[in-house]
Design a protein around this nucleic acid. Structure first.
Lengths: 131, 131
DNA sequence: CAGAATCCCGTTGGATACTG
DNA sequence: CAGTATCCAACGGGATTCTG
């Protein structure tokens, strides 16, 4: 009798090669600032650079620019420039980006539900080390 | 008429302070090797250090050790030592770890479904730059 | 076998200053 | 306002060597 499969991601169409591509993609987007920007844009729909900068508490302007460029390149975010003075640039999620946001939502919820468990686990681990 | 809320993670109990904790946790686990190890342990249930090392294609022994220690500290992975010679150590997911794996499953599926879209978006973006 | 320790280099990322 | 450019410190992470 076979054990039930636990590898939920393994779709029929999967191959080692595709697995590698998917891994690379995960490695690319599984990033602190990336996920934070996506989360914020999920809530606010559209924001200017400065607004994002303030919402992203702790991010440097360099990292915000870098993060936004990468998101734009991946087709997850659109960048709209208004040719006015002073310059106005607005960012928002594409459908692709919104899809990722929804997929990642499960992880947010997990983190929300379990951050205390994790905290306790760490305390226990650290305490055991000193003993 | 209000627009529908898009911020799925905002549960009633959420506060700015908790948001920060959750963000930190996401920042901690949203890591290439971390997610890869969790994925592999989800498939295989229990593995020895060497097996994990081979399954994790590309990881150095230093990073594997480091990743496993962090996972263990966070209560996501258990480390079982068999007092034999030569040493035998087995790693597997805790329930907490399995929960994260399931939560992250949505992202894997998203990546599997959309990696081609992303690829096209990048090509388009890069082509537009050269113009 | 399962790591700990060391060396070392490339990248990351912050601070600051400058521009259209 | 929305960036770009530059400099520099810190960290990540690979290769190698050593140990119980």
């Amino acid at each position: 009798m076979e054990k039930p499969a636990r590898a939920l991601r393994h779709y029929p169409e999967t191959s080692p090669e595709i697995d590698r591509l998917v891994m690379q993609l995960i490695g690319r987007i599984a990033d602190k600032w990336t996920m934070m920007v996506i989360e914020i844009l999920t809530e606010k729909e559209a924001l200017r650079f400065g607004e994002l900068s303030r919402a992203c508490e702790g991010i440097s302007q360099k990292m915000l620019t870098q993060t936004l460029r990468a998101l734009e390149r991946d087709g997850l975010v659109t960048r709209t420039v208004f040719p006015v003075i002073p310059p106005k640039v607005v960012y928002s999620l594409t459908d692709l980006g919104l899809g990722l946001s929804e997929a990642f939502c499960g992880v947010w919820i997990w983190a929300l539900k379990n951050h205390e468990n994790i905290h306790h686990a760490r305390e226990a681990y650290d305490a055991a080390l000193l003993k």
